[in-house]
Write a protein that binds this DNA or RNA. Structure first.
Length: 214
DNA sequence: AACCGTTCCAACCGCGACTGA
DNA sequence: GTCAGTCGCGGTTGGAACGGT
């Protein structure tokens, strides 16, 4: 069994202090994301890389939209969950400013209950029989490359491999779901210059057109 | 005011995938 | 091809906040 680097001693656990946040933000704004394993030492943090990555992705990233989920977002999450199941990172990729963790929490705490109340079986993602899933060998990387949908895609840093992500995009909506989803321009990650953007303004600029592809 | 149950969310854990030597 | 290191994902947990009695 591989040794988990987070098991090592002299590692802080639990809630992050504002000082730790500050150090991490400062370091990433200067040096960029990635190389998570080396970040704690370089940034002077007594945390494991995994913890830094999580903190950045789920909380500190400047483009994160906080606050309540809108009806549109709820609706989209429900539809995407029906399509994709518990693949939160894929779902999050289609909800700009929302993280997989946030969506997962939201689903587990509110949406699942909402669906139960509505009498929907939330446990069953509805794959359509004739549409290939990502594992389908018929959907090769060549198929993907030739698709205009995937051709110009920049590898996203949300952890989904380019190919896997493209394959997901070949999924078609189920016939019983009214997936009225709009394809829009890729959501741009604006880096640290957007740090000051208030959450309120993020709310204000919310558009009913939710982005499907990044 | 005190207690208790519930809700919510940040953080952790374990595992599989990926990558480079 | 193999192995070790690293990364990313999804499930789970812990505890603070909240609401009801």
């Amino acid at each position: 069994m591989k040794r988990n680097s987070c098991e090592k001693q002299t590692i802080n656990r639990g809630a992050w202090s504002s000082q730790e946040d500050e150090k991490l933000v400062k370091y990433i704004c200067t040096h960029g994301e990635g190389r998570w394993r080396t970040i704690p030492k370089a940034a002077g943090l007594l945390r494991c890389g995994k913890s830094c990555r999580l903190r950045w992705i789920n909380y500190l990233r400047p483009d994160i939209k906080r606050g309540n989920f809108t009806e549109d977002e709820d609706d989209l999450i429900i539809k995407l969950h029906a399509l994709l199941g518990n693949r939160w990172s894929l779902i999050a990729g289609r909800l700009p400013g929302r993280t997989d963790n946030e969506i997962k929490n939201h689903w587990n705490s509110r949406l699942s209950r909402k669906l139960i109340r509505m009498g929907v079986d939330r446990s069953k993602p509805r794959w359509i029989s004739r549409v290939p899933r990502a594992e389908d060998p018929a959907l090769t990387s060549e198929t993907c490359k030739s698709s205009p949908l995937c051709r110009d895609r920049v590898p996203d840093d949300g952890g989904v491999s380019r190919e896997a992500s493209c394959r997901e995009d070949h999924l078609s909506p189920t016939s019983d779901l009214n997936l009225d989803l709009t394809i829009s321009l890729p959501f741009a990650l604006h880096g640290c210059e957007g740090q000051e953007r208030s959450h309120e303004s993020a709310e204000e600029t919310h558009s009913p057109t939710l982005l499907l592809f990044r």
